[in-house]
Write a protein that binds this DNA or RNA. Structure first.
Lengths: 235, 235
DNA sequence: CTAGTCACTCGCACACTGTACGACACAACT
DNA sequence: AGTTGTGTCGTACAGTGTGCGAGTGACTAG
């Protein structure tokens, strides 16, 4: 038997609550609300404890460190993603729905991209997400390592595209501006600086319906990725 | 004339160094070294100042805030990316080279993905990267908004894929392990927990040459994306 | 040569962070 | 009744980013 270093996931919570007490679930739920409302920088153990009506260091009995708490939060959020089975609408629509679900989850939890790149996810929800995702890829006829790669490609795209979107949205939020105000500023700034090609590009990306633009961007890119997978399958 | 809020990029450095003194370039260079060596969490203004042999708050004369410094660092790093012109090898090989160059830059500066999703890049190097990238897309025959979307898709993929890679590598580094050690641990842990599909997937992803696996993953996904763009062009 | 004005440096202080430690309280079991 | 385990929390430490105001050196005007 190999001795593996402990991790949040391997060692489970003791049973027996006994008296009225803080629980890990409660902490996770409250932290999630705080994080969604104020962003990653706004989450501190002390503020979280205050919101729970407990002493700051009490949390440490339930959760080893703040980083571990964030691991729990990430997995919690993975659980919100819907992935249909391949029998419902085939692999392609399945991946499409998966991607859209993942996008909306990220938009709902804008701190996700930032922390995603600090730690690989290995929580239970991440696992079932993997399982269901691979089922879709399998239905497309891709197997072995390539299955992992293909699923990873879809997820990389979604995370990258939506990550760029939330970066802009969060910048506006932090600056206390509306998205349109921010975008107008960016356009004005680019107007004075960049070369004609980027000026033109900035104009395209900063006029009209910004929400719609992000949405179109996502769909266009997703189409590219799915089409690329389809090409791979046919070959 | 619209009054636009100041940004690192709009307001340039005064001339006239006068006496021997700290410079913004020097700060950026030293910060970059520290960041590459110790990661984002290891960069503090005080440590940086110590490394520069100056008082902590002296930096604030040259750089408004730490966040602004990071903006400068990001743009510095964008400058390291090579993008060939389309006349050299056509749009497809051009994008391929671009993607590989971007990947190796991210691997060299593993803190990049983490900060990328906090702020949109608008520095000069980001601009010329955009210009040159769009030239390749244009050569593929994609124009207007779709050009921005297509370029964004390539970059999203690269950032996502390489981001996942550095997440794993950094986890090993922080834990003081080699990549192989970490990966072996992950495999053992997955062996005891996950369902058969993920167990199989974990085995695939944790045996053999890990570096090569990351590389293959990147190439496979990149192929998907480029093939998808090619399909878009033909249609 | 002196006076003044910039460009720049830096010590101190403030409010805040994560978390180790050890003292406490309450429930259950012997 | 005493012991053990589960859970809480005040205090303290070592750090963080950065505002403020005093100080220093070089250059320029009179």
């Amino acid at each position: 038997m190999v001795c593996v270093k402990e991790s949040i996931w391997t060692r489970q919570q003791k049973a027996a609550p006994a008296r009225e007490t803080l629980t890990r679930e409660q902490i996770v739920r409250t932290a999630l609300e705080a994080l969604d409302a104020e962003g990653l920088a706004g989450l501190s153990i002390r503020k979280l404890a205050a919101k729970l009506g407990s002493g700051a260091t009490s949390l440490y009995w339930h959760v080893p460190t703040k980083d571990d708490l964030i691991d729990l939060l990430i997995d919690e959020v993975w659980g919100e993603i819907d992935i249909p089975g391949p029998e419902l609408a085939g692999w392609r629509s399945g991946l499409l729905l998966f991607a859209h679900s993942m996008r909306s989850v990220i938009l709902r939890h804008p701190w996700l991209p930032e922390v995603m790149y600090t730690r690989p996810s290995q929580g239970p929800n991440a696992m079932t997400m993997g399982t269901r995702g691979l089922a879709l890829i399998d239905a497309a006829g891709i197997t072995g390592r390539n299955a992992d790669f293909a699923l990873g490609t879809v997820m990389s795209f979604v995370l990258g595209n939506t990550g760029a979107e939330v970066a802009t949205r969060e910048l506006a939020r932090r600056g206390g501006q509306s998205l349109d105000e921010l975008v107008a500023e960016v356009r004005d700034r680019t107007e004075t600086i960049a070369d004609p090609i980027m000026r033109e590009s900035a104009r395209r990306r900063t006029t009209g319906d910004i929400d719609g633009m992000f949405y179109d961007s996502f769909n266009y890119g997703l189409e590219i990725v799915l089409e690329g997978i389809a090409a791979r399958v046919k070959a």
